[in-house]
């Protein structure tokens, strides 16, 4: 069993921006979803866990070793997919994976070759293996990023916005792969797409303005608002009035009408229908709470 404990992590950048503010989390084997809007501090947190940057305060303990002091402790067990990455031109996908496999410590040449081939197949890149990653389309490049994160024997996988740029089928395959791996190790999935977390994660946290505003099991979290979410289609012009009157947590366009969802312990008015609460509703409700 692997454990990752974040104790009171704060990060202030040189330009004064406070990206992380007293984060405490404990993460064990399984998929862990980190949900947050753009700019909430997800990437800062991921980079801190991956020992790519030091926190200003606090400590990251991975399997009882302080990563801030000994970054090597996490690096030897890490698979990391950054949110944005580039590659070297003129190097084929296979060669680049092989190189990274060497860096990650797969010392046996045959094993290296086998794992690279397997991963290329699993990410459906095998027929493109001789091409330079530089020429890959966005989706292919993203799959390559996933393949490299799985190299070796990772005990902690951090994937930052992994499904961006993937088509629905690719996304499915990828998430299946992750959940399969996530049975035995820690997989941290950072995303702003609620469905990803909903489908896969046993545990999750919501990050906003550098703080954890909620954490726990998604189903349990959703339960806290069960029966309290109401919906109603309204003309668009009336939206400000509703926002004034109710806790509107989300608005959707459905067939040209605006469908609003409102959080309320009881039916706000007769024309509101009850609706089944989902994780998205929970997320929006928390964000709504936090940002008001």
């Amino acid at each position: 069993m692997n454990t990752l404990v974040l104790k009171n992590i704060s990060k202030t950048y040189a330009n004064g921006v406070k990206a992380l503010d007293g984060i405490n989390l404990t993460i064990a084997n399984g998929m862990f979803g980190l949900l947050g809007a753009n700019g909430a501090g997800k990437s800062s947190l991921m980079r801190t866990i991956a020992a790519l940057q030091k926190p200003s305060e606090g400590s990251v303990i991975f399997n009882d070793v302080d990563v801030v002091k000994t970054p090597q402790a996490v690096r030897i067990a890490l698979g990391f997919l950054p949110q944005e990455f580039g590659v070297y031109p003129k190097i084929s996908a296979q060669e680049l994976l092989n190189y990274l496999a060497v860096l990650k410590g797969i010392n046996n040449k045959k094993e290296r070759k086998e794992q690279v081939a397997t991963l290329l197949q699993q990410t459906n890149l095998y027929q493109h293996r001789k091409k330079s990653v530089y020429t890959f389309s966005g989706g292919m490049k993203q799959r390559f990023g996933i393949a490299q994160a799985l190299l070796g024997n990772p005990k902690l996988i951090i994937v930052d916005e992994p499904t961006a740029g993937l088509d629905p089928e690719e996304r499915n395959r990828f998430l299946n792969l992750l959940s399969e791996i996530g049975k035995h190790i820690i997989v941290i999935l950072s995303t702003h797409i609620v469905e990803d977390v909903q489908e896969l994660c046993k545990q999750m946290a919501i990050l906003a303005k550098g703080k954890i505003i909620a954490s726990g099991n998604p189903t349990a979290l959703v339960k806290t608002i069960a029966g309290k979410v109401w919906k109603k289609p309204i003309p668009k012009a009336e939206l400000p009035a509703y926002q004034e009157k109710y806790r509107v947590i989300s608005t959707h366009l459905v067939g040209g009408d605006t469908l609003i969802k409102v959080l309320s312990d009881s039916q706000p008015s007769l024309d509101f229908e009850t609706t089944k609460a989902g994780l998205e509703d929970y997320y929006f409700s928390q964000m709504h709470l936090h940002y008001l």
Binding site: Q121, P154, E170
Partner: peptide
């Protein structure tokens, strides 16, 4: 721009980690 993606072929192989030693 590369030709559009091939339809995904479902890989039959399961993910297996490989021994590492630093």
């Amino acid at each position: 721009q590369k030709p559009s993606l091939q339809l995904a072929q479902i890989s039959t192989q399961l993910y297996r980690s490989t021994k590492v030693l630093i």
